[in-house]
């Protein structure tokens, strides 16, 4: 007997004690197909404008910095200003995201824009988030050529652009959006839920930012909530 069959057999010996396999199979198939909601915190159930406010407050509460800009056209300037204010070289790394590509980077004459996955030498990377989650100030980022995962973790400064209209109230709302976005091509290889910059408390339980991932997380919220 294979290890797989032996393990399943032992489990089944207990599980089938109550009801028949047919009933159980239906219960499982139903739950997977309908994925019922559980308890949804009141805090995340808000009107769009309030949602964006809570998202910003929660993100700042976990040491992210947040800036609102009117439109995508304002993003390159905001990025350049951020880099200057942190005394960083005028250079960023981005993926192939169409929304990022459409922004007027060429107007920032001194800014170098490298594309593709990070090689570990970039000090700043820019990604476009799939959505924000207001209840905890979390960003949802998905892997792929548009926004390579390495940009989320290797640069010291991670700048994430998210549309105000894409700020969801709760984790369940964000997963519903993910499910919709991956209906045709399936789940992306990696989905990163990011809540503030990297940190560690492993030396005497003192929290220090910038463990292995970014030391700083800067969020640019674009446009108005809809």
């Amino acid at each position: 007997m294979s290890a797989r069959d032996a393990i399943l057999k032992r489990i089944r010996a207990q599980a089938t004690a109550g009801s028949g396999r047919g009933d159980r199979a239906k219960a499982v198939a139903d739950r997977l197909a309908k994925h019922p909601h559980g308890v949804i915190p009141q805090r995340g159930q808000l009107e769009p404008a309030e949602r964006v406010k809570l998202f910003i407050a929660k993100a700042e509460g976990v040491q992210a910095t947040v800036q609102s800009v009117k439109s995508g056209d304002d993003v390159p300037k905001a990025v350049a200003t951020y880099l200057r204010s942190r005394n960083l070289p005028a250079s960023i790394r981005i993926g192939g995201d169409k929304r990022l590509k459409a922004m007027p980077w060429d107007k920032q004459k001194a800014l170098e824009v490298k594309t593709g996955p990070s090689d570990g030498d970039d000090l700043a990377g820019v990604s476009h988030g799939l959505c924000g989650i207001a209840e905890t100030g979390t960003l949802m980022l998905t892997s792929g050529p548009d926004n390579p995962t390495t940009i989320n973790f290797l640069p010291e400064h991670h700048i994430v652009v998210v549309d105000a209209a894409d700020v969801e109230g709760t984790l369940e709302d964000a997963f519903a959006r993910l499910r919709k976005a991956s209906r045709r091509k399936g789940m992306p290889r990696a989905v990163n839920l990011v809540t503030g910059p990297s940190r560690s408390g492993d030396v005497e339980q003192k929290i220090i930012l910038g463990a292995h991932g970014p030391k700083a997380l800067h969020i640019l919220v674009v446009g108005k909530a809809k």
């Binding site: 976990v62 892997s143 399936g186 839920l193």
Partner: peptide, 17 residues
């Protein structure tokens, strides 16, 4: 800070993973 869902290996067009 990081909750990461990993589903399978790198896809055909993925630049990393």
């Amino acid at each position: 800070v990081y909750t990461t869902l990993s589903t399978g290996p790198r896809r055909e067009k993925d630049p990393d993973g």
